[in-house]
Design a protein around this nucleic acid. Sequence first.
DNA 1: CTAGGGGTAAAT
DNA 2: ATTTACCCCTAG
Length: 302
Amino acid sequence: MGAPKQKWTSEEEAALKAGVVKHGAGKWRTILKDPEFSGVLYLRSNVDLKDKWRNMSVMANGWGSREKARLALKRVQHGTKDDNSMAHANADDTDEDSGDTRPLPSSSSSPHLGRSKGSMIRLDNLILEAISNLKEPGGSNKTTIGTYIEDQYWAPPNFKRLLSMKLKYLTQTGKLFKAKRKYRIPLAKVVPEKKNIPTMLRIEGRQAGSSPMRVDKKDELSVPTKGKIDLELQKMKSMTQQEAAAAAAQAVAEAEAAIAEAEEAAREAEAAEADAEAAQAFADAAMKTLKGRTAQRLMIRA
DNA sequence: CTAGGGGTAAAT
DNA sequence: ATTTACCCCTAG
């Protein structure tokens, strides 16, 4: 009886995650009753939600609440292997391309200096996810976004600063719209026609922020200079190392929800090469973990 | 009802 | 053998 009869679909997981975002983790009954999710989760019970959330947390965080039991179990099963020093929490990618037609620069060789290997996942995805999940009409402000991310993820000490930087950066590159303290995703989600947005960005005359970051006479937001991107990358790398591990771990769990965003980002990666690359890498990583699961459950259980 | 500890067994 | 979904039970 304890069997994977009905595997959780992406929709269900998405609904669950959205529900958690909306009502908070633990309000399973509330989530279940929410008409927004009941359509998808109607054949799950509150306990199912709880267990699923637990499972997801376990594999994502590696430190849910069941992980100890797992380790203990593993220890027992694997015979004589006592004493483990669990002083490290590292999520790493295993490069195992079975017949993959894409070489992809393997990060297994980090030449000089202790470079953080793998995971180029950054706040970008988290921010986008936050905004799209929050689904706030006029967009979401920094605080809301921050709260969301802090809630769902591991919040680094300097997180607030990082968030501000990222928000600014995303706004500058046109990946986000800022209007009256609120951030929106300029995406044409359901729009059938491709909107060509020429120059309608940054109309706000005042940069209430701190650093204007050099406002060129002409607009370069469409095509950031290479140097600029490099600069951003540098900054990113140095500031990501801390949250990267945690974010990467979480990203695995959030892959299904975020993969769409990653694809979108890659698709409309006009000049943001860095972002496209990151998104692609992210998508690939996500794909690996997701393998092939196109199962469509049609069963109905009484 | 929820959190969590514990378990079973199907799928992979 | 591990993962994953589901179940059961108990304490709040």
